[in-house]
Write a protein that binds this DNA or RNA. Structure first.
Length: 202
DNA sequence: CCGGGGATTATCT
DNA sequence: GATAATCCCCGGC
């Protein structure tokens, strides 16, 4: 397995990157413990024009500063005062495109994920939904700004994992009702049949 | 199985 | 002071 290249992250179509990230492996290596999982659900947030994005109309604050960093940077923010949400920044410097990682299928370090989440058994809720992904992987706002080619947090291409494009479904994004018309854009992607996908699975 | 509401606090107005 | 790219539990079918 190989880490994704800067060229991958710097692609100019964030919606396409969101689709391509399905099936990739995200990993963290914090405090000497490796945890990883396969990405099964993503959402694209498009720079400048997307009312659902924190960077709509070029809004730039201390919170979303890392959205403006170069492709491959992690943008982590806190939602509802308690959930750590992991995003992959794409495109060039100063273009705030980002992909939210909404769900993964846990692979390595499941014991550590159970410890972090306080769950007793590994069921589909362990890494279903963006808040749970951050919690299980040990990701916090302090990790925002790290580049996903670092030793501690990265995304890899699993060449052994072949998926048919037909296995990926597109739908409207979740939890962004206040985004008006943009709420219905088909910018959410998920792996058909995965029990780890949050929300509607069709 | 499904819908409603509370939790909890960083962030922005 | 209001809001939020969510989650969990509970009660009612």
């Amino acid at each position: 397995m190989k880490k994704l290249s800067n060229e991958f992250y710097e692609q100019t179509d964030v919606v396409s990157v969101a689709r391509q990230l399905i099936g990739k492996i995200v990993a963290t290596h914090f405090d000497g413990v490796l945890t990883s999982g396969r990405i099964v659900e993503t959402e694209a947030y498009v720079a400048f024009t997307d009312r659902a994005s924190h960077a709509f109309a070029g809004k730039r604050t201390a919170r979303n500063e890392h959205m403006y960093a170069t492709g491959g940077t992690a943008y982590v923010y806190i939602c509802y005062g308690m959930h750590q949400m992991l995003n992959v920044v794409t495109n060039a410097n100063d273009i705030p495109d980002a992909v939210l990682i909404r769900a993964i299928e846990p692979l390595e370090g499941i014991e550590k994920m159970l410890e972090r989440t306080g769950k007793k058994t590994s069921d589909s809720t362990l890494t279903k939904g963006p808040g749970n992904v951050g919690k299980a992987m040990g990701i916090f706002k302090k990790h925002s700004g790290l580049h996903l080619s670092e030793a501690t947090m990265y995304i890899m291409d699993d060449e052994q994992f072949h998926l048919d494009p037909q296995q990926i479904t597109a739908s409207a994004r979740i939890g962004i009702d206040s985004a008006g018309e943009d709420a219905s854009l088909p910018y959410r992607f998920f792996l058909k049949g995965s029990k780890y996908v949050s929300g509607k699975t069709r």
